[in-house]
């Protein structure tokens, strides 16, 4: 098939005694996918495996050559209290090997995307919950990754920020693969082009969404 970016083949994962993922197969094109499912359905587990934080017990993930780094926002993202917002992003930019010449502009761009421009000198311990979440999103956006994995990105964001986030995701539509998990019907409707529904470790269905 043409245009298939990422192929996930029969991913399995067992955590403790529980079989959390029972052979997930998906094909992801450059588009925005919503990942829905009840608590404990295995959304976070799937995203962690795709981000490379955790190894799968079986199956394979095929990514195209040279697709670069993935951006990942964990469900529990925190800020290191001693760092400022800018330094925190600088830390991730270093880990992602973003060249020093464009590091600053890239960091400022990412902060601008989540409306944290002008707050870069603020100490992370003084950030509110929603700001931490946004700093997390900014961190995932660094380096324009071709695959963006966001675990409940809109939790804790106010109306205004949610709208802004929608705008940012819409801008990426068609260029990059975005996989975001959420519990909000509103998010699925406004953001996603397809919705992947997980149920007890299996893909129940992939539903195409249309915007209003």
């Amino acid at each position: 098939m043409e245009n298939v970016m990422i192929e996930i083949n029969r991913i399995k994962k067992k955590l403790g005694k529980k079989e959390v993922l029972k052979g997930i197969s998906l094909q992801l094109k450059p588009s925005v996918y919503g990942l829905a499912g009840a608590n404990g359905a295995g959304k976070t587990t799937l995203l962690r495996i795709l981000a490379g934080v955790m190894n799968a017990d079986g199956g394979e993930i095929v990514m195209p050559e040279g697709s670069g780094q993935t951006g990942y926002l964990p469900q529990k993202f925190g800020c290191f209290p001693e760092l400022t917002v800018y330094e925190q992003l600088e830390y991730f930019a270093c880990l992602k090997k973003i060249p020093a010449s464009c590091m600053e502009s890239e960091i400022l761009r990412a902060l601008e995307c989540v409306n944290l421009g002008g707050k870069e000198k603020m100490k992370c311990r003084k950030l509110s919950g929603g700001m931490v979440r946004r700093a997390g999103i900014a961190q995932a956006l660094l380096g324009n990754p071709a695959l963006l994995l966001l675990d409940e990105p809109t939790v804790g964001l106010d109306m205004e920020e949610r709208k802004n986030f929608n705008r940012v995701v819409r801008e990426m539509e068609g260029e990059r693969t975005v996989l975001l998990s959420t519990h909000l019907a509103e998010d699925l409707k406004n953001l996603c082009q397809s919705v992947i529904i997980l149920e007890s470790g299996e893909v129940r269905e992939v539903v195409p969404e249309t915007y209003d």
Binding site: G52, V53, P74, F77, G78, F80, P81, Y91, F92
Partner: peptide
């Protein structure tokens, strides 16, 4: 604990 997960993905 705050940065571990996100760092590992990098």
């Amino acid at each position: 604990p705050e940065l571990k997960e996100a760092s590992y993905s990098c």
